[in-house]
Computed example of a mutant assay.
Amino acid sequence: MMEIEKSVAWQRHQLATVERMQRDLARLTHPVIRAVGLCGVAYLASWAVVMVLGAAAEAMVIVAAVFAGALVLVAPAFALAVAVERYVRGRLEDH
């Protein structure tokens, strides 16, 4: 049985294509990942203030609720962005 191998030039072409695809997709995925990270930090910080100040921090409970809502709404986009990043990185590691 005859096996066909990919040439070195073809492998380099595929690698360059995947790298370009990663750069193009990163413009969409990185802002989503950063936004979720910032919302998470703000959520945790607002709850830390509530824990320290107790009932005197009523406004921070509202802030925490807003950021929790934002996290819930953006969670599907975050999961998709992370999945895309992992897929592309896996393709790059295979080469």
Rank of each mutant, 00 (worst) to 15 (best):
I4L: 15
S7I: 04
W10H: 11
Q11T: 15
Q11D: 14
R12D: 12
R12W: 07
H13L: 13
Q14I: 14
A16L: 14
T17S: 13
T17H: 10
V18N: 02
E19Q: 15
R23C: 05
R23K: 13
D24T: 06
R27P: 01
R27H: 05
T29Y: 00
H30F: 09
V32C: 01
I33H: 01
R34G: 06
A35M: 04
A35V: 02
C39N: 07
G40R: 02
G40S: 02
A42E: 07
Y43Q: 05
Y43W: 12
Y43D: 06
Y43V: 02
S46C: 09
S46T: 03
A48G: 08
A48M: 11
V50L: 01
M51K: 13
E58I: 08
A59R: 10
M60C: 09
M60F: 15
F67I: 02
F67W: 05
A70Y: 05
A70N: 06
L71I: 01
V72P: 03
A75S: 05
A75R: 04
F78H: 12
F78Q: 05
F78K: 03
A79P: 02
L80W: 12
V82T: 12
V82E: 10
V84W: 07
E85H: 07
Y87E: 14
Y87D: 13
R89F: 09
G90Y: 04
G90D: 06
L92R: 05
